[in-house]
Design a protein around this nucleic acid. Structure first.
Lengths: 144, 144
DNA sequence: ATAAACCCTGTAGTCGACTACAGGGTCAAG
DNA sequence: CTTGACCCTGTAGTCGACTACAGGGTTTAT
């Protein structure tokens, strides 16, 4: 159950061998050792680490952020404040993206409802008209 | 007010000259004509078209999709059904992305609330613990 | 007439997270 | 002792939407 070569590890965590080497370049994982011929050898811990990476990615963290989380995790004595800060920042980031998408969605939904579909031509389509019209941006008296 | 060179047009719509040439390569716009020396000359319509592009992008359409919308818009006799279909698909797409983000956000929020921050160490941080633990994925009896 | 500002084509770089070679060396099975 | 599966490094390609040159030619203002 030890001395995992990169291929075995990759199969176990369902990632490509190339991906593992890529993560290494990115500073996310390192093999425990190498054989004389240069083959990477991983310990069981590597599997945990890779699952950590995957879970963090699923939660929306970029690989750079995952690297940061991992390095914090590697120093168990340190304050959790930084982890909390990263998490808060990611939440804020996600909230912004949700709001943007909500805005797009409601704009599109409003247009979609008015579109005649098969019952009309593109010339009458309010979606295309909206895209052709000036967006009403009448705020600020535009002095200067 | 006519015979816009690429630079003038770019300034008017606040895009880079390179971007306009890029849009041309992507099949989104074409100059009305060229000078003998090969300079692109645009009509006023180009401005509308570029604003169309921008508005469609803001609504979440990719340049490929914008190209499709433009070509539909260029055939005013055709049924609006295709425009409606594209719009619906985009709405569905956005909804999926919102749901993904909502899921991330609630997972992160739950963890963030439990994190002690300055009051604790990374070893006690539930965010890192969660990333280190197996995700509870106990659905399906895993036969086969 | 000359310099600045503009235009052209064509190619390459950016970001993020991979993925795919090319051109080798190594190891286990038959 | 050879075949095939594995491993190595290093480089380049992918996607989308630009952005930035390099190495020219043209137009405009002085």
């Amino acid at each position: 159950m030890e001395n995992l070569t990169i291929g075995k590890l990759a199969r176990q965590v369902d990632l490509g061998v190339e991906t593992l080497r890529y993560y290494e370049r990115r500073g996310l994982i390192e093999p425990q050792s190498r054989t004389d011929s240069g083959y990477r050898l991983y310990s069981e811990d590597a599997r945990e680490r890779l699952q950590f990476i995957r879970r963090a990615q699923v939660l929306g963290f970029s690989l750079d952020e995952v690297a940061e989380l991992l390095s914090l995790s590697d120093r168990p004595e340190q304050s959790a404040a930084e982890v909390k800060r990263l998490t808060r920042a990611k939440i804020a980031d996600i909230e912004t993206r949700i709001l943007d998408l909500e805005r797009m969605k409601s704009a599109l939904s409003a247009l979609e409802e008015q579109c005649p579909g098969h019952a009309g031509t593109t010339a009458e389509c309010p979606i295309l008209s909206a895209l052709n019209q000036q967006a009403p941006e009448p705020v600020n008296g535009d002095i200067a």
